[in-house]
Amino acid sequence: MPTSTRRGNGSVAEPVARSPIAPAGPTGTRGAWEVSSAHSKAALRLADMTALSKVLVRGAPGEVAPLLCEHLRARREDGSLIVGTGPDSWLVLAPTGRSDAVSEMIASRLRGCTSLVTVIDVTHGSVVLRLSGESARRALEKVCAIDLSDRATPNGSSFRSRVAAVVSTVVRDDVDGDPSYLIVSDRSSGQFLFDALADAGQEFGIGLTGYPEQEI
């Protein structure tokens, strides 16, 4: 039976980490994670991206923001996505298994700061979902009170609010011009949030898709 604890130092043949969200369709492994290998071609798609590495950064706004990202914005850098989740907090999303490397990178960049800075790996404490497609905005609007128009929340913007009553960080992160949102919330709310978004997307013919090749 797969366990969620790391065994020894060697490579791991079977998955040691799982998302709290039941995988859609067949599963495979990516790094140490069990992920869905389903593939949907629907116009609106929902994917569980929980296997991504997630690193939380806290620090003084004046010192850290210029080095990472402004509040309410998200910025792509070296295959990772840096999100300004609050005036003094940031979330870095990176491909699976990269949390140690990302933490090292952030810590070294912020070494010159005089204020207290904390860098914490929160990979196993949160879930990440991606809602993509033509009608992603209309589906998300059903469960989120924030103005999702291009004027208020263009590509590259982020905010923290309630999605289906769950406190979440939302990042507008279009993929090749296709509207797309990343939604990050606490792990314990994961399945509920996934179901709520799948339900909201029903009228737009939502398809559940697996963990993509291009992770972030």
Partner: peptide, 20 residues
């Protein structure tokens, strides 16, 4: 307006105290 931040002394803070 933002509530003024509680100012803490930096005397004891390790420079670049970030770590994972």
């Amino acid at each position: 307006r933002p509530k003024p931040r509680f100012e803490r002394s930096n005397a004891g803070a390790e420079a670049g105290g970030g770590s994972s």
